[in-house]
Design a protein around this nucleic acid. Sequence first.
DNA 1: AGGAAGATCTACT
DNA 2: GTAGATCTTCCTA
Length: 197
Amino acid sequence: MKQEDGIRILPRSFYTQDPATVARGLLGRILARKAKEVRLEGRIVETEAYYGRGDPASRAYRGKKSYNELMWGEPGIAFIYMVHGNWLFNVITGKRGEPGGVLIRAVEPLIGLDAMKKQRGIEEVRNLTSGPGKLTKAMSITKEQNGIDVTDPRSEIVIGGNVEKGIGIESSHRIGVSQDLPRKLRFYIKNNEFVSR
DNA sequence: AGGAAGATCTACT
DNA sequence: GTAGATCTTCCTA
């Protein structure tokens, strides 16, 4: 059986767009993780866009450092870091050299529910992946996966799939940031129960 | 050494 | 629904 049966993986050119555009465009896509023998999939239902200079909430705000240099690199690369003891999963976007990224905040579990429940130590499906730190734990994503290319079919994590027509997209201000921008940079699928909060 | 940070869980009013 | 404890890494002093 082929690894990517069915899903069409998004090309790198998709990620060269503006972070907010990519954040919207990722809604409804499939986040697929292959770990050892297990295959895990979730549908992306909530994202946030982050910029570089001029965005106080961005990891890139204070300039290039060893821990954030990926943000200046190739789009389509996973950027994973820890906040409050949780791993958060981002994808680098924008042109090379212009820092930007999209945080995946929530997914709807599709495949591998049993493995996710085990990872999370809970049974309630609704609570499995409805938050940025929850989904990484459910899909066993850690710093180990930092820097992997989500556009490469051989990667442990890829993003793809087609979006159903007519999904409702809403936007709001980003969650949890101490200094937000005036623009609404959080996007989510309307009435989806796996959106955080 | 001390504190903040893109969060989560538990235990309550 | 809100409050407090706690998670780990990096920043500032």
